[in-house]
Design a binder for these strands. Structure first.
Length: 464
DNA sequence: TGGGGTTAT
DNA sequence: ATAACCC
């Protein structure tokens, strides 16, 4: 893999400080208390134009050509060839074709291959450290603190270039090899490089990485050098980084709604937010949001890297025009069929099903409504095996949810349908002798005889 | 704006 | 069930 970055400024290999009498490097006694939340080493890994990369792997003839991935009338992402020619993310297909007539488009409405590749990336990163948090399909945070500590213990002072940073350093700030925080982050940058190398060698994917002391800063710094490069942020540069943002809307964690409310208070820059009265902010946004985002404005973020593990929900959606119950039912069947395949592969069983609609309306930014209910237990039990037996009863349940939301006797116009399986439970967690065992129909003796199915507290659709 | 995801209230 | 956030 090509490495665009040169060795970082300020890192001079072999410039170790004085050694202790025992021959150990000076920093071996600079212990950070175990479990301490101060001074972590976090990496944010961000794949380059992920969907486009997956498409180019599926069809290598696309490599070298300007490529866009299309969903409905939008180019949701594109490769760098296309970006050079003026195509932007989430650009209208017409505008994109106008800007770039040679643009090759592939349909990316089926996320299956993207999702599969996404989890391969997360699993690869989990081999480095189990503390991996997914953010969308193409980003991951990894807490490297423990791994860095282990490498520091192993580190021999006579290893040549053991203390060379990998990739860029933000602002070209010099590394101080006598500063333990610098050393720890530098080791983090080496691990980040190994991660990117593994992603390329094992999966054929390129991406960026940012190494810093918390998630916010790692995420912000990962985007500094853009495709296929990595950047390390040293603590002394964190204020420069956050003030390089032109507007608070660029701060991860401050979304559309909060931005509007902040603007109404006259807050638009990061410094505006830093210096704004905490009391007033708390009264306007609530204490929780106010305190969190004001800390973010200083580059402070104590939120942990929370291991994502397997997904909490599976959903399939399609945006399309729908004005009759028959159209809705057909689409629901289609969405459900795909979901059943996915849930079957996962192995766990969903205990809740949800139907989401979007109604046509001229103005109103985010309008979605949903109804959910427990999946009847007799359907849950058939989930692993008979894929077709469950279709009909599940569609019945979903259509009841549909009619609960939409008055089918009146004209209606929907623009989206989505089906979601959630409340996923592992199959045989109930162990003999526990309360669960006796309350789990599939394991209890009465249920095993197959003659009684008990209901427990499931709400039934007849209730509607 | 698509087709997904998450957590908090 | 909705509302906010993320991609």
């Amino acid at each position: 893999m090509e490495r665009a970055e040169a060795g970082a400024a300020g890192s001079s290999p072999g410039a170790l400080g004085p050694e202790e009498p025992g021959g150990l490097p000076w920093f071996h006694d600079q212990v950070v208390p175990a479990g301490s939340s101060s001074s972590r080493v976090i990496v944010h890994v961000d794949l380059d134009c992920f969907y486009a990369q997956v498409e180019m792997i599926s069809n290598p003839e696309l490599k070298g050509k300007p490529l866009g991935v299309q969903q409905k009338y939008l180019v949701v992402t594109c490769n760098y060839e296309a970006r050079k020619l003026g195509v932007k993310k989430l650009m209208n297909v017409r505008d994109a074709k106008e800007k770039c007539p040679q643009l090759v488009l592939v349909n990316g409405e089926d996320l299956t291959r993207y999702r599969e590749m996404s989890y391969k990336v997360t699993e690869l990163l989990e081999e480095f450290s189990p503390i991996v948090e997914r953010l969308g399909f193409d980003e991951n945070f990894v807490d490297l603190t423990e791994m860095v500590e282990k490498r520091l213990e192993q580190l021999q002072s006579d290893e040549p270039s053991a203390l060379t940073v990998s990739g860029h350093v933000y602002d070209n700030q010099p590394i101080n090899l006598h500063d333990i925080l610098h050393i720890r982050l530098l080791i983090g940058s080496q691990i980040a490089a190994e991660m990117r190398e593994a992603m390329y060698n094992q999966l054929g994917l390129t991406g960026c990485a940012g190494v810093a002391s918390n998630k916010l800063l790692a995420k912000l710094v990962s985007g500094i050098f853009k495709p296929n490069q990595q950047t390390l942020l040293l603590p002394e540069s964190s204020q420069d980084l956050i003030h390089s943002l032109n507007h608070i809307k660029e701060m991860p964690g401050i979304g559309y709604k909060t931005t509007k409310r902040l603007e109404a208070l006259g807050i638009s820059s990061v410094r505006d937010l830093q210096t704004f009265s905490s009391k007033i902010l708390e009264k306007e946004l609530g204490i929780s949001v106010a305190q969190r985002i004001q800390k973010l404005s200083f580059g402070e973020d104590n939120s942990p890297v929370t291991p994502s593990g397997p997904p909490q929900s599976f959903s399939e959606e399609d945006s399309f025009k729908c004005s009759s119950e028959v159209e809705a039912k057909n689409k629901i069947e289609e969405l459900l069929a795909s979901l059943l395949n996915r849930v079957c592969q996962d192995g766990r069983k969903p205990h809740t099903i949800r139907l989401i609609i979007r109604r046509y309306s001229s103005e109103k930014h985010y309008n979605r409504e949903s109804r959910q209910c427990p999946i009847p237990s007799h359907i849950i039990q058939k989930l692993g095996i008979g894929n077709y037996d469950v279709m009909t009863p599940m569609v019945d349940v979903l259509m009841k949810l549909f009619r609960n939301m939409v008055n089918v006797k009146m004209p209606f116009h929907l623009t989206l349908l989505s089906v979601c399986f959630c409340n996923l439970k592992a199959l045989n967690t109930a162990k003999k002798g526990t309360i669960d065992y006796y309350l789990t129909p599939s394991l209890s003796t009465t249920s095993r005889s197959g003659k009684h199915s008990f209901k427990m507290k499931d709400t039934h659709m007849e209730d509607f």
